[in-house]
């Protein structure tokens, strides 16, 4: 059983899963590592680690700035792999998922899957790699048991969804809104219906992300899904230089969803 399967299997009997997103190297590598460790200690079940990119097209202003801060520190892909390795040495169980843009992953060429595996990475989310373009990428990752986590959006219709589910693994990430990260989430019922629909078609766990910024929203979203993703709000603390607050915030989310 993979680390991701383990986390979600525990979930069947009790806990909803809390997924956190932070950007590798934001505000610098050392702090980034410390923040990840704090997140684990405060209840994060899965770490999504952003790979900073010069052109983060799907991100709202808060996460864009996080990418810019990390790039100012000249973060290289090998630094990110090292960061994952260090986390993995200290924690054997927490799944690590790298989230980024296609051009970053392409830079590792055919070594990508192997390098990810060696760094203890469990999955990859590629924002600008839709299902249609992903066949060989998916197969290459599979060889090293790395899951390609699919993003499903409000505009994904059922026909397409069924095709996507045939080559999905790990978990599914439902993007709760049409827009960029950190935007305002308006229609709960729409999200609920869509998640129910997805769950009726697959056994894979479904987590909901984009626009979840507080405990009450997290609670609502978790009530019909397998877990939630929080990113912008955590990064907001980093931007405002109040990283000590991250821990309590994470604990409050964890409490709210269970």
């Amino acid at each position: 059983m993979t680390r991701l399967e383990k986390v979600f299997n525990q979930n069947e009997t009790k806990n909803k899963v809390l997924v956190t997103y932070t950007v590798a190297g934001d505000p610098n590598l050392g702090s980034s590592k410390k923040i990840l460790k704090d997140l684990i200690a405060s209840g994060a079940d899965i770490l999504e680690i952003g790979v900073p990119f010069s052109d983060p097209m799907s991100e709202g202003p808060v996460i864009q700035k996080a990418h810019e801060r990390a790039l100012k520190k000249n973060i290289q892909f090998k630094d990110i792999l090292n960061l994952c390795k260090q986390i993995r040495i200290e924690n054997k169980n927490v799944p690590i998922v790298l989230m980024g843009y296609m051009n970053s992953f392409l830079s590792l060429k055919n070594k990508l899957a192997k390098e990810l595996n060696q760094a203890g990475v469990d999955g990859v989310i590629v924002v600008d790699l839709p299902y249609d373009e992903s066949k060989s990428f998916f197969n290459n990752l599979k060889k090293e048991n790395i899951d390609l986590i699919r993003l499903i959006s409000p505009t994904t219709d059922s026909k397409r969804l069924k095709r996507m589910l045939a080559s999905s693994s790990g978990y599914l990430y439902y993007v709760s809104l049409k827009g960029i990260t950190g935007a305002e989430l308006k229609n709960f019922n729409e999200v609920k219906n869509k998640v129910k629909k997805i769950k009726s078609l697959t056994n894979l766990p479904v987590v909901v992300g984009f626009g979840i910024k507080d405990a009450p929203t997290a609670k609502k979203m978790a009530s019909f899904s397998d877990g939630i993703v929080v990113g912008t709000k955590i990064i907001d603390f980093i931007e405002k230089k109040s990283t000590p607050k991250i821990s309590n915030f994470t604990k409050s989310l964890k409490k709210a969803i269970n």
């Binding site: 799907s58 600008d128 839709p130 993003l151 959006s153 409000p154 505009t155 994904t156």
Partner: peptide, 20 residues
């Protein structure tokens, strides 16, 4: 029909834009 010119081109966008 995949929107390619040899290996170039394609549709590398977020899932939300695919329908559009």
């Amino acid at each position: 029909k995949e929107g390619r010119f040899g290996e170039f081109g394609g549709k590398y966008v977020s899932e939300t834009l695919i329908t559009a």
